[in-house]
Design a binder for these strands. Structure first.
Length: 737
DNA sequence: GAGCACTGC
């Protein structure tokens, strides 16, 4: 018996007070008796810290460790710290954690906290998780992409039996009270364990300033400020937390609040005479860390703190002492739109469950109040009950490649807790095929196996592997790293700073000839790496040093993975002569040929992906203003605001993508449908074929008309774009159609 | 001539 197991007699007093303690024995019993178990309980029930300890002390991990997944890094680290402390063991030994760039565990670690992404990586290396006896998926109600994939994988692994394992793996899913019925039935109606929470009541009030008709407007900033000020003047002492959607709004709201709070006469206007001032603090992710830290400082005596935050304050950061919430009812969300083939960042109403989550932030240390600026009508008509899980609204290319590499061939009928739309899956398959990651029959290729090793989106991986084959990875590794961290260019809210930042960024652009945004990223990376005082250089040039630093770590990790893969004897190898700049651009084409556009009318460009969307270059690009000299471009991403903008742009030559472009139009959705279902039994295939045939017949005429119309449209747009402006490529390109 | 939430490998 180890030191920690013995410590069961001397359990922490604090732990015994937790609601979960009452049910300790029943819980252990339930885990022993069931392959699957759902444990539900609100914040403060102690499930995250206590359950793994109970199971450990009960000796349930003598044949394999307990893995506990979290959607966020900080959570994994802090919980592991606390549990190791409670058990009286050193962190990293019996109790440890693993997150990207930080592995604090050993072979002997028996309780291992980790991010869901790390667990997914472990499954890729060892699909039957032979080292584990129990896997606990925590915060399942958040429905993060990785947790959702794990939910399905663990169901599938276990339903296959315990092959490759001595004893069957046990799965415990921990979630807030929502959706437990759904989880239970997903795992064959397994038992649900409910643990009472320990939070304070929060009174909720609708302020009726926003109704269903105001769904699309952005004037709610004014309303939010009004409510926050009402709270400040009428409510007893206690801090305020305001939820808005982004940096711009937050800065505007803070300015307004400051103006209004300044002219308040605290002697007469403020109801609670102990409140003598208002401290206004913005909070959003791209803010410098030391500025973020100020949020946690208690306000001086008599002063009320008012934090104006993005959704970062809903789960990632917990601020003590909040008694009042002002909820705008909106959130900024990245949604994949498969109709136009773009990811779009948009402001949408939050769900009812998210509104409750926000309200709950007021009841952590005492009773609180939540003021919703919208009406009950808005609540009923505009807000969905639950947030659509990430797996149903993001691009699935990476996920599908992972599943394929794990031997899941029928990616359409994989056991998803919530199925993504079929066309999302088909789009992902199409992309993987275009990258040569899967073949026509849906099998993972040699290249696909290499691609899955990298913690990068497939387009960047493809470009990186091309560069590695040509032996010029030293230029693509930094670019890939810089593109996978947060935005590195500082864009200040105040006009004076904006001018200054713009000038500095233009200088960097000029130093690389202003020719391409990817090259500019490479330039910043190399300048910082070569500099003795990189942080000073960044400050001077309005660059986020924090972001560049994380790009350094990413680059190191990518480089290590690449070096390992290059040891394999059949690693692709090609030769090429040309300048560095040219090499970089050609490699990028391999990853971004799905994002090719050709200049059409004036300064606008026409995409070549079959959608024929018209886009313009974003003013933040170093190519902005040089459109008339450009012909063909590739772009990293799209931003839809007042117009459809492409950002991070690179000019290319048509010859570089000429042979790649036909791939975009080559494969048919029906073909992919059958590819996706390829590994199913003949009988099932027959049934499906018949159903599809019936469906096709039923809507045959309508479909034929639509199909025809769409083809004509696409064809004409394509021709239009190709032939516009007499740039000499029209004839060659036209031959492809 | 504009304005990019939050995670994660």
């Amino acid at each position: 018996m180890s030191k920690a197991e013995k410590s069961s007699e001397t359990e922490h007093h604090e732990s015994k007070k937790l609601p979960i303690y009452q049910q300790k024995d029943k819980l252990i019993q339930a885990v022993k008796e069931n392959a699957f178990l759902i444990v539900t309980g609100e914040t403060g029930s102690g499930k995250t810290t206590q359950l793994p300890q109970y199971l450990y002390k009960a000796g349930l991990c003598r044949k394999g460790r307990i893995g506990v997944t979290q959607p966020r890094r900080v959570a994994a680290i802090t919980v592991a710290q606390r549990v190791s402390h409670e058990l009286g063991v050193r962190l990293g030994e019996e109790v440890g954690y693993q997150v990207r760039f930080d592995d604090c565990s050993t072979q002997d670690t028996v309780v291992k906290y980790m991010t869901d992404g790390c667990m997914l990586r472990e499954i890729l290396a060892d699909p039957s998780l032979t080292q584990y006896s129990i896997v606990i998926l925590d915060e399942a109600h958040e429905r993060s992409l990785n947790t959702d994939v794990l939910l399905g994988l663990l169901k599938k692994t276990l339903s296959k039996g315990s092959h490759g394992r001595k004893t069957p793996l046990k799965v415990v899913v921990m979630s807030a009270t929502l959706e437990t019925e759904k989880l239970s039935s997903f795992y064959g109606h397994c038992p649900v364990f409910t643990i009472p929470g320990r939070t304070y009541p929060v009174k909720e009030k609708f302020c009726n300033l926003i109704g269903p008709k105001d769904k699309d407007s952005s004037f709610y900033v004014k309303e939010v400020v009004k409510v926050a000020l009402d709270v400040h003047t009428n409510e007893a002492a206690g801090d305020i937390l305001v939820f808005l959607t982004g940096q711009f709004e937050i800065e505007k709201a803070c300015d307004l609040l400051f103006e209004k709070a300044e002219i308040l006469d605290y002697r007469y206007d403020v109801h609670d005479q102990t409140v003598e001032g208002l401290l206004i603090l913005p909070l959003y992710g791209s803010m410098p860390t030391d500025q973020q830290r100020q949020i946690f400082q208690p306000a001086p005596k008599g002063v009320r703190k008012c934090v104006v935050a993005t959704n970062i304050a809903a789960t990632s950061l917990t601020i003590d002492g909040i008694r009042y919430i002002v909820d705008s009812g909106f959130v900024k969300q990245l949604n994949h739109n498969s109709r136009v083939g773009l990811d779009i960042l948009e402001v949408v109403p939050i769900s009812k469950s998210e509104a409750q989550q926000r309200a709950g932030r007021a009841g952590r240390t005492s009773a609180g109040k939540c003021f919703r600026i919208y009406s009950k009508d808005f609540w009923d008509k505009c807000m969905p009950d639950y947030t659509i899980p990430e797996i149903q609204r993001t691009s699935l290319t990476s996920v599908i490649l992972t599943l394929k590499c794990l031997g899941v061939h029928d990616v359409i009928r994989f056991p998803y807790l919530d199925c993504p739309e079929e066309r999302f899956i088909l789009t992902a398959l199409k992309q993987l095929y275009q990258y040569d990651a899967i073949d026509r029959r849906g099998h993972v290729t040699r290249l696909g196996r290499l691609m899955v090793e990298f913690p990068l989106p497939p387009n960047l991986t493809r470009a990186l592997l091309k560069a590695a084959a040509l032996g010029c990875e030293d230029i693509m590794l930094p670019v890939a790293a810089m593109l996978s961290v947060e935005n590195i260019f500082i864009r200040p809210g105040k006009p004076e700073g904006q001018k200054e930042a713009e000038i500095r960024h233009k200088e960097i652009a000029a130093s690389v000839g202003g020719s391409n945004d990817f090259l500019m990223l490479l330039c910043v990376f190399e300048k910082c790496r070569a500099s003795d005082h990189p942080s000073a250089w960044c400050k001077e040039h309005w660059i986020h040093w924090r972001a560049v630093k994380s790009a350094f770590s990413v680059e190191t990790q990518l480089s290590e993975i690449l070096q390992r893969l290059k040891q394999q004897k059949d690693f692709p190898h090609e030769t090429f002569e040309g300048s560095r700049n040219e090499l970089l651009r050609q490699c990028l084409c391999l990853g971004y040929f799905t994002n090719v556009a050709r200049r059409s009318v004036g300064k606008s460009f026409c995409t070549m992906d079959g959608h024929g969307s018209s886009v313009v270059i974003h003013p933040s690009s170093c190519l902005f203003g040089q459109e008339l000299q450009l012909d063909w471009i590739i772009f990293h991403d799209v931003l839809v605001t007042s117009r459809v903008y492409v950002r991070t742009v690179c000019p290319i030559r048509y010859e570089w993508v000429k042979d790649l472009l036909p791939k975009l139009h080559e494969i048919d959705v029906y073909e992919l449908s059958s590819v996706a279902r390829e590994e199913v039994t003949d009988e099932e295939m027959d049934k499906w074929e018949k159903k599809e045939a019936a469906k096709r017949q039923a809507g045959a005429f309508e479909k034929a008309v639509l199909h025809f119309a769409r083809h004509i449209f696409v064809y004409m747009t394509f021709l239009f774009c190709l032939n516009r402006g007499h740039r000499g490529c029209g004839k060659e390109a036209g031959e492809e159609e």
